[in-house]
Amino acid sequence: MSKYTDLISNYHASKPLFFQHIDLSTRPLIDVNASLDNLVTAFDIDNAVGKQLDILGEWIGRTRIVSQPISGVYFSWDTDGLGLDQGVWQGPYDPDSGFTSLSDDTYRIILKAKIAINNWNGQNGTLPDILDNALVGSGVSMQVVDNQDMSISILILPEIEFANVSLELISAIKQGYLTVKAAGVRVKEMVMPSDGSRLFAFDTDTQYLAGFDQGSWDEVVNNGN
């Protein structure tokens, strides 16, 4: 039964050949419609994988290939931060020195950020929502600091349980794949805590800053561009 055979009147519904004829004639339309529905689901950014994400990347304007090989993130036994669910599996054609093609999970985050960037209105007040929405569940947060001299500084802040943070994502952020800035504004520096999840600051206790015994000295991971 389909939405077309449901419309057959009672008189004709008792005629098996008529019923089969209507079903045979309309079934391809139903199958085509179902296939189109599956295509929409397949290219939903939250469900897309592999080549589907690559095609989305072409539409959105961000490739999976990074400009510099990402190293130090391959899975390894007995290595902090590179164990199960942390390190990236080395593919059969990946060089030992690092890989240039992002995994689906990291690429999906970058595409979500790029979608938001494409629709950004250029105002600083809307930046937190863009970064928070893109990075939700990733174990990383970012804060953009306006230096008031046509430059910004970017704070990269891992969660307290750093072991849950993707080193691949951190590397992609360092290369600028989640950088949001207005035209003419340069990135002065990217900074991470040298240890822990918050930067040191006097008499401050926030999501990003903390005092003695909790905050960590900053470590510049990218001198900007």
Rank of each mutant, 00 (worst) to 15 (best):
L7G: 01
S9Y: 06
Y11A: 14
H12I: 01
S14F: 02
K15S: 08
K15A: 07
K15V: 12
F18L: 11
Q20S: 12
Q20C: 01
D23L: 11
S25H: 05
S25C: 12
S25I: 13
S25D: 03
P28D: 03
A34I: 10
L39G: 05
A42C: 06
I45S: 13
D46F: 10
D46W: 05
A48I: 04
D54R: 07
E58C: 12
I60K: 06
G61N: 10
R62C: 14
P69F: 05
S71G: 15
G72S: 12
V73D: 03
V73R: 13
F75G: 00
D78K: 11
G81N: 03
Q90M: 15
P92T: 05
D94I: 10
P95K: 12
D96M: 08
S101E: 13
Y107K: 02
Y107A: 07
R108Q: 12
K112L: 10
A113G: 14
G122P: 02
N124K: 04
N124R: 03
L127P: 00
D129W: 02
N133G: 07
V136F: 05
S141F: 01
M142W: 03
V144H: 03
N147M: 06
I152C: 02
I154S: 02
I154V: 15
L155S: 00
E159T: 12
E159S: 11
E161H: 07
E161R: 03
F162H: 06
A163I: 08
A163V: 07
A163R: 12
E168D: 04
I170M: 14
A172V: 13
Y177V: 00
T179Q: 04
V185P: 01
M192F: 04
P193V: 00
S194L: 08
S194E: 11
S197Y: 11
L199C: 04
F200P: 02
A201N: 08
A201Q: 14
Q207M: 11
Q207W: 02
Q207A: 15
Y208S: 15
A210W: 09
G211P: 11
F212S: 09
D213Y: 15
D213I: 10
D213Q: 15
G215P: 11
W217S: 15
V221M: 09
